[in-house]
């Protein structure tokens, strides 16, 4: 028996909006500690990891570990039927091949349930070891989204370089080049507006902007984004979900031919 009641149902709606274009089908894993997902995009270039911890749910019952295969496009269609203020409850019986999404309006005057068929997904799970990163940049998520969008109108790839001067996002294309430098800036009114750069070593890596723009769809989940870079590792773009967990995107770099 599985029953997860999320008062802030809009969080789940935002999570699906953030990952549905990157991943078509995925297994959602539910255990006593939380609701999670790990999935690669179809070309195995990027990986998404989601964690929603049990304590973030108003009610969390998961009697045994369960993996539920879902088509994210179909799941998104169902979650779009929930209001932004609705409470969302996920329910599944042991051995069932369906999951039920229940939507309750805040004043309980409307209750809807949507039953979705589960699917068998043969997905590969990757072990991601804890890593020391050469540079970690925390910045406003909207700023990062804006930079990725702007650069993608000029070129296909972004070079992210972290030095003592700041973090530089560069691209080049047929029409010209672009460089955007963000300096550390902690003298702001609100902490979420700060740009904070922790650098152990300078690092410079190249990534496909198409994926970065896809990750930026998680912007509504968090005011800030954390970008962790190491010269021999995929970049980690993390959006923290307040009090609950995170959505992390891992992207393999491009190397020179």
């Amino acid at each position: 028996m599985l029953e997860l009641r999320l008062v802030q149902g809009s969080l789940l709606k935002k999570v699906l909006e953030a990952i549905k274009d990157l991943v078509n089908d995925a297994n959602f894993d539910c255990s006593a500690t939380g609701f999670s997902l790990q999935a690669m995009d179809s070309s195995h270039v990027a990986l998404v990891a989601l964690l929603l911890r049990n304590e973030g749910f108003e009610h969390y019952r998961c009697d045994r570990n369960i993996s539920m295969g879902m088509n994210l496009g179909n799941m998104n269609k169902m979650l779009k039927c929930a209001g932004n203020d609705d409470i969302i409850t996920l329910k599944a019986d042991d051995g069932s091949d369906t999951v039920t999404f229940m939507f309750e309006s805040p004043n309980q005057d409307k209750i809807a349930d949507f039953e979705m068929k589960l699917m068998d997904i043969d997905s590969e799970h990757l072990g991601i070891p804890e890593a020391e990163y050469h540079a970690i940049v925390r910045m406003p998520s909207a700023e990062f989204a804006r930079i990725c969008k702007d650069l993608s109108s000029i070129g296909d790839t972004v070079v992210i370089s972290v030095t003592k001067e700041g973090v530089k996002f560069s691209t080049k294309g047929d029409i010209g080049t672009a460089n955007i430098v963000c300096r550390q800036n902690t003298t702001v009114d609100k902490p979420e507006e700060a740009t904070v750069i922790e650098m152990k070593e300078p690092v410079s890596l190249t990534f496909a902007l198409r994926y970065m723009n896809s990750f930026a769809k998680a912007t509504p989940l968090s005011h800030t984004v954390t970008i962790s870079l190491s010269s021999e590792l995929p970049v980690v773009v993390e959006y923290k979900i307040e009090d609950m967990g995170y959505v992390r995107f891992y992207l393999a770099p491009k190397i020179e031919e």
Binding site: H44, L233, A252, K254, I255, E256, E257
Partner: peptide, 14 residues
């Protein structure tokens, strides 16, 4: 531009 590496080149299947 450049060769796109796969995420599977970095992390092992569990």
């Amino acid at each position: 531009t450049g060769i796109q590496l796969s995420i599977k080149e970095f992390y092992r299947a569990t």
